[in-house]
């Protein structure tokens, strides 16, 4: 398993290098000259040129890239063009919040999806199954910004159970943290829950027809063991694939949900940077997002190795 992990880790390095090219190249694709933006609308040509020199934008691309990548490798992602804060600090503030939000959303979505899928697969064709299928379709179809607003309307404004906006770090007060993160996480997780439930229901139904499930029953194993062990380990493979895709979607969705609920995560940092064309921050956010996505894909592959022994190298 360690060898599998290391070989898989090694294959991410070329991808990572490629990604840094793309992230760096983004700057070239963005319309507008940052030097002009920084210098302000009334600046003279000389002033713009001076700003360009100060920021190092006049140097050859290769030099700029090398500079950027070596600093990034040592954790220095540059400084914001506007706030003059180090980019790494802004990301360091926002990233844990976004990760907490996405992880909670993922947890909530699995807590909804797994029992729903098992019940619907075992009671296939009954009203329970139909209700959950309709629920899944709705969950996939409803946009998260609308759902988020409805949740705020219901749970915060009408029932008054949960705060509508804001965020409390877990380190300060875990109880408050949970109260604040629950609605955003539910909003973010519900589409994933619907998708996972549908996928898992299908694969459970497929696995239930396998001969080895009959063998498990013939051994006299209890229903809980047959489903929980023999069926679920095999049925989880397609679910893990879906989850791998969902993790990236969760990061994207978090941007929106953070806006709705006023959660100070990476999404806020990204949106501010994009509206002000704060290129070092954009680059930093994209790079971090890509690394997180690649990390989650790595995790997915390792999970495959656990679930399906055939995937492991020998």
């Amino acid at each position: 398993m360690l060898k599998f992990f290391l070989t898989r880790l090694a294959t991410t390095i070329p991808v990572l290098i490629l990604v840094t090219f793309v992230v760096f190249g983004l700057v070239l694709l963005i319309p507008g000259d940052p030097a002009v933006t920084i210098a302000g609308p009334d600046a003279t040509v000389e002033q713009v040129a001076a700003v360009r020199v100060r920021l190092g934008l006049d140097r050859p691309m290769v030099v700029q890239y090398w500079d950027w990548i070596t600093s990034a490798a040592s954790g220095d992602l540059g400084t914001s063009l506007f706030t003059s804060r180090p980019v790494a600090t802004s990301i360091g503030d926002g990233l844990p919040v976004t990760i907490a939000l996405a992880a909670t959303a993922l947890l909530i979505s699995l807590l909804i999806a797994i029992p729903t899928a098992i019940v619907s697969a075992l009671r296939r064709g009954t009203w329970l199954d139909r209700v959950s299928t309709i629920g899944s379709s709705l969950g996939i179809a409803l946009p998260s910004f609308w759902l988020g607003l409805m949740f705020v309307l219901l749970f915060s404004l009408t029932l008054g159970w949960l705060p509508a906006t804001g965020y409390v770090p877990m380190s300060r007060n875990p109880g408050d943290w949970l109260l604040h993160i629950f609605l955003p996480a539910l909003t973010l997780g519900i589409a994933g829950a619907a998708e996972s439930a549908r996928q898992l229901r299908g694969s459970i139904i497929g696995v239930l027809q396998q001969d080895y499930v009959r063998t498990a029953r013939a051994k006299g194993l209890r229903g809980r063991m047959v489903i929980g062990k023999h069926v679920m380990k095999n049925a989880s493979v397609p679910l893990v694939t879906v989850l791998g895709l969902q993790i990236t979607a969760l990061l994207g969705g978090a941007v929106l949900v953070e806006q709705i609920f006023g959660v100070p995560g990476l999404g806020q940092v990204a949106i501010n940077a994009v509206t002000t064309r704060d290129i070092p921050v954009i680059q930093g956010v994209v790079l971090v997002a890509v690394v997180v996505a690649m990390g989650s894909n790595l995790l997915v592959d390792l999970t495959y190795g656990y679930l399906n022994p055939k995937v492991r190298p020998r």
Partner: peptide, 27 residues
């Protein structure tokens, strides 16, 4: 069904036709 499951194994056991698919690939 529960009592039947207690019997399957110690009293009556089965061997199936397809040894390829009758064992769980994941364990």
């Amino acid at each position: 069904p529960k009592e039947m499951a207690d019997i399957r194994g110690p009293k009556i056991a089965m061997i199936f036709q397809e040894p390829m698919s009758s064992l769980n690939p994941a364990f």
